[in-house]
Every structure is written in C-alpha cells, then in structure tokens.
C-alpha cells in the first residue's frame, strides 16, 4: 500500500511516514505544501491520502475538493489542529472520510489509516481469506489452515495488495506504483522475483491457490469460487 502525507510541519510528516513504513509496511511519500501535494494525488497511485488542513500554497480542503472532482475514490484522512464542528462538517461533506485532531495518538492514526484502506477496498474486517489462506492486516501475518507462513516484508505487502482484489488482473506497473515510494529505484523485474518467492512459500504450505502470471498483462490471485 502506498500513502501520501501532505504536512508542512516536516518533523511531524517524517514521524508519521516512519510509523506507517515501520508498523504497516506501507510505502510513503511526503509533501510539505499543498501545491506539491495536489500534484502528487493526480497520479492516483495512492491507497490513502493523509492531509494537513492548513497548508502553504493550497489548503487541505481544496485538495479534497480537487481529488473528489476527478471522481478519485482514494480514502482521505485529515489531520487538523482545529476541531470546530462546522469545519469538520465542511470537510466530511467535501469528501474527506475521516479526521484526527492534533496532537493525535500515532497508534490511532495507524489504525484509522488501515481501516480506511481496508474499507476503500471493500473489506470490513482486518482478516482477509482466500481458500485456506488468511491474511491478518493488524498482525501483518499470513496463515494457511492456522499455520504461519513466513513471508518477507515485501512478500507480505505484495500478497496483501493482491488479496484485496482476488481474481482481478493486477499489472506489474500497478504493483510497483502501490508498493514503492519515490525514493525506490524502480526495477520491474523485482516484482517478478518477489512473486516467484511468494508462490514457492504458498505451495510449501500446501495451498493450491496460486498467483497466476498472465503474460503481458500482470498477475492474478486465483481463488476458489465459494469463498469471500
């Protein structure tokens, strides 16, 4: 998952970004002003936008309006030091999904971020299941019939992204965009290598559910019909 943090207080943005990377395994980009922030949202490769309200250049509310005008459904969480009800109402009506007032609890911010991403992808529970495999987004673990499968952080992130969209074809480009931030050197074959490792580990656990490679188009998580 990839998150955009738009916050002019650089120290705060760095802390939030570090927590999101460490605890959730998300790729995070930061912008310290509204103009850059709004420009980054246009790529639409974020799974969550974290916006400060008072920003130089362009304020958070304007960014929310811009994003929603494009019919962009990306979940938006607002960080604000002001919590007058009128302002909160205006924000939510403009299309924001949630808000947190500063100073917030970092743990709460992470939990809300995960919940918003989950909801944005149509899941209501933190545990997602395909066949015999279940993925716990809180613990960041993958189990097959209750037995833990040991995955590297990147493998976990890959699988987490795919399991939200079972049976859909996900291109390597989309995976790259959603799993790595701008500081990452892009190598398209890095995805292929991780997918291959992931397949091996799933098969070793005894799961026939597999990740199919659709040549020239991308990857697909095969899932038995009955579940979900």
């Amino acid at each position: 998952m990839r998150v955009l943090v738009v916050e002019d207080e650089v120290r705060l943005a760095n802390n939030v970004a570090a927590a999101l990377r460490e605890r959730c395994g998300f790729a995070v980009d930061c912008a310290d002003n509204g103009i850059d922030g709004a420009a980054l949202t246009e790529y639409q490769h974020y799974d969550l936008l974290l916006l400060d309200l008072m920003l130089p250049g362009l304020d958070g509310l304007s960014i929310v309006r811009q994003v929603r005008r494009r019919k962009d459904m990306t979940p938006i969480l607002i960080l604000t030091a002001r919590d007058e009800p009128a302002q909160v109402i205006e924000l939510l009506n403009a299309g924001a999904d949630d808000y947190l007032t500063k100073p917030f609890d970092l743990g709460e911010l992470l939990a809300r971020s995960k919940a918003l991403i989950r909801r944005g992808k149509g899941a209501s529970q933190p545990v997602l299941t395909v066949g015999r495999i279940s993925l716990n987004t809180v613990e960041q673990t993958v189990r097959c019939d209750g037995n833990l499968i040991d995955l590297s952080p990147t493998e976990y992130r890959l699988f987490e992204y795919l399991i939200f969209r079972p049976r859909a074809i996900v291109s390597a480009r989309e995976l790259l965009e959603h799993l790595y931030d701008y500081n990452w050197q892009h190598h398209s074959n890095v995805i292929e290598a991780h997918i291959s490792n992931l397949r091996k580990k799933l098969r070793a656990a005894g799961e026939e559910t597999s990740i199919a490679t659709i040549r020239g188009r991308g990857y697909r998580l095969e899932a038995p019909d009955k579940q979900i």
Binding site: A18, E22, K102, L106
Partner: peptide, 16 residues
C-alpha cells in the same frame, strides 16, 4: 497543538 503533535509523535515513534 502542532508543536505538541510533533513531540508526541516523535516519542511514540521511538517507543513503538
């Protein structure tokens, strides 16, 4: 509040 948010998040990040 912003200053406190910086302090609080820094401390929570350190102890995470």
């Amino acid at each position: 509040k912003t200053s406190i948010a910086v302090l609080k998040s820094s401390l929570q990040l350190l102890s995470m």
